[in-house]
Design a protein around this nucleic acid. Structure first.
Length: 419
RNA sequence: GUGGGCGUAGCUCAGUCGGCUAGAGCGCCAGGUUGUGGUCCUGGAGGUCGGGGGUUCGAGGCCCCUCGUCCACCCCA
């Protein structure tokens, strides 16, 4: 292979997969719009500082950032996610809250690729900025839940947790750090390294060696104050009332530092791989302010296209849309008739395709068959001479010769009947 | 970044101990069918065996390097 290929961690999304991706984003947009969210397109790169707010201790910032200096000497980075960009946009433009937006598009993280993880990966998501209302938390969770259902996914499990408010989290982190520091020799080497950067992340360890220490660790729930407790209880109550099953998972801390209060994660129980989390989010009060805006609470989530589509594959739902045209035009008289007939059909609102380079009728019929068109329109020398055209059902093989002027009507009759 | 598996036709893969001109299925093209697809039959095109170096009379197969890919770890969508 001497030519060029895609860079590591990137790939071409070819047909028919690309059609499936677009349908995915379209469906998400419909669901978001039905909840009052409007479409937002943030830039794909920003000042590096925007993303440093994700947390100086997170891997996303310390080792996965696609950052570089542009020709103007600015330190910029390809976005690793879009929440920070949305918050920056809020701080910059100061829209009237509540600001409800949804987005879709690629993000970039410099990681070692594997299944369900790429350096360029697509997410869709929503953000709700302004209110610090537990119903807002419940709404974005419900939106995600409804979207999974819309895709046809059944095997999705929701975990929720609360980290408490800023003060709760600081106090808890100190207690946890002290606890873990005492048991340093009982922790795995990996977790000791994690501890020095971000104690909370140790709770997420799935390593057997850490199980005992993690199980005995102080629990966040015992350090959450009354205000945050009430907020969380209301979120859970609302979820219960609208019929969304959940499990409270008190070690769910998620990977970014900006989360406060509610955090949540969706896992596909149909997936077998290491990466079963198909989406997640939470509340991030304080992020807008950290980016130079007014104190503005916010809540949102993002979900990954690759993994969610892997889950769809596992459950056999949400197939790629059928790309077939309505009509395939076969022309053995040189090709000009194909151009005219196809054009007439398209003007009449039918999708139509044709063959090129003057292939034989047999060859063109094969291409027509492959195209998935339900109807073929055939022009040969006889038809051209007599001003007629053959309309054929590709499914039944039934065909009629009609006057050229009646072609559109005859096609409509065949399409109507064959549906 | 660490560890392991795998790179042979467009795709999925076979290729024995290092030994003739590197194969199969699918797909593609053409013909069988002098105007008609799907099934069937026949034929054809398509390969720098990922790349470079080495060992050898001889390398797709062995050794080294390198690139890519997959899986796991780290982390995460």
């Amino acid at each position: 292979m001497s030519g060029f290929t895609t860079s590591p961690g990137t790939r071409d999304i070819l047909p028919p997969d690309a059609g499936r991706w677009r349908a995915f984003q379209d469906v998400f947009g419909e669901v978001a719009a039905s909840h009052g969210y409007r479409y937002l397109i943030p830039p794909m790169f920003e000042d590096l500082g925007v993303f440093l707010r994700l947390g100086e201790a997170t891997d996303v910032v310390t080792k996965e950032m696609y950052d570089f200096e542009d020709k103007g000497g600015r330190r910029v980075a390809l976005r690793p996610e879009q929440t920070a960009s949305v918050c920056r946009a809020f701080a910059q433009h100061r829209p009237v809250p509540p600001w409800k937006v949804w987005y879709a598009g690629p993000n970039f993280r410099y990681e070692k690729p594997q299944q369900g993880r790429y350096r360029q990966f697509d997410q869709v998501g929503v953000e709700l900025l302004g209110p610090c209302d537990p119903d807002a938390d419940a709404e974005v969770i419900a939106l995600a839940w409804g979207f999974y259902r819309r895709l046809g996914l059944q095997q999705i499990a929701l975990s929720v947790n609360t980290l408490g408010d800023e003060g709760d989290l600081q106090r808890y982190t100190a207690v946890l750090q002290a606890y873990l520091a005492e048991r340093l020799d009982e922790l795995s080497e990996e977790s000791r390294a994690t501890l020095s950067r971000n104690p909370l992340r140790v709770l997420d360890s799935k390593r057997p060696a850490d199980a005992a220490v993690v199980a005995g660790a102080p629990r966040i729930v015992d350090h959450v104050g009354d205000g945050a407790r009430a907020h969380f209880d209301r979120v859970l109550a609302t979820l219960g009332e609208i019929g969304i099953p959940y499990a409270v998972e008190d070690r769910l801390v998620r990977g970014l530092d900006y989360y406060r209060h509610t955090t949540f994660e969706f896992v596909s129980t149909a997936l077998d791989a290491a990466h079963v989390a198909v989406g997640g989010g939470g509340r991030y009060d304080g992020l807008v302010e950290a980016l130079g805006g007014p104190p503005t609470p916010g809540v949102g989530f993002a979900l990954g296209l690759d993994r969610t589509l892997l889950a769809c594959d596992a459950e056999g739902c949400f197939p790629a849309p059928d790309p077939s045209v309505d009509v395939f035009v076969v022309d053995t008289t040189g090709g000009r008739e194909a151009a005219l007939v196809a054009d007439e059909l398209r003007r009449a609102g039918r999708s139509a395709d044709r063959a090129y380079e003057q292939r034989s009728m047999k060859s063109q019929m094969k291409i027509a068959d492959r195209s998935g068109a339900r109807v073929a329109v055939i022009v040969g020398t006889d038809e051209l001479a007599s001003g007629t055209i053959v309309v054929r059902s590709m499914k039944s093989g039934e065909q009629r010769t009609v006057a050229r002027s009646e072609m559109v009507g005859a096609v409509a009759a065949f399409l109507g009947g064959a549906a």
